[in-house]
Amino acid sequence: MINFALEVGPTATPEAVMFWILAPIAVAAAAGMIFAKKAVHSALLLAWVMITLAIFYIAQDALFLGIVQIVVYTGAVMMLFLFILMLVGVDSSDSLVENIRGLRPASIVAAVGLGGLLVSLIGRATLGTDVVGLSAANSGGNVQGIAEELFTKYVWAFEVVSALLITAALGAMVLAHSSVIKSRTAQRDQSIARFRGASLANAAGLPSSGVFSRHNAVDVPALLPDGTPAPTSISKTLEARGDMLSSKPFELEEKEAEED
């Protein structure tokens, strides 16, 4: 078995080189994620940030965490995210109108303030202090160590997480699944309805729209032989939208017919 645990001490040179190459890229990608105009670019940059973090984890002997970060976050979560962006439409953009006046400057000040506070406090607490306990935690192997904790000490919490997963699945069903309330009429049903209906007028299908050679469009009802328009010939949606034209102007007039 490969032993990934390095001796704990000052950062080894290869690790330092890797850090100074990857860290600026990660920061640039994170900044790009915020400033990118298109949602897809943001998502891809975020995936890149996650991959870099995973490499850092692995370099710091957290092998399991690194792999999980790639498989779960980058692989599953971010790709789902991308799918959803694609489904919603790559071109759709959020409205950037501020509902509350001065919200943006206030939130920038608050975010920078909280971030600065945290960075300075945690920096003061961690910089210059030695790392302890890593080799002890990794003594039996990184994955084995996590497995032991997960299946002995925290097994109860691990089991209770199943309730969370069931809730999530049930919740997704409640919010997204719509069961069929009225069964849709299939071709067979429509055919039966045509021939067993009160009249056989529509047995050959509904009339198609438009007035022959005058206005052959979907928004004009067809004219029946007796000169009346046939409302069944155009889509109900057009009618509801009010996009229907009258077929009167396209009617053949008596006179013309006689001249012919």
Binding site: A163, I166, G171, V174, L175, S178, S179, I181, K182
Partner: peptide
């Protein structure tokens, strides 16, 4: 039917059919 859009035809149909979102009981218990 929680998935039906507010004010849509599906919602009216669901209302008429007397359905109920009985998932609230297991959700409450969780």
């Amino acid at each position: 039917q929680a998935s039906a859009l507010p004010g849509s035809i599906e919602e009216a149909a669901a209302l008429e059919s007397g359905r109920a979102q009985t998932e609230v009981f297991p959700l409450t218990l969780f």
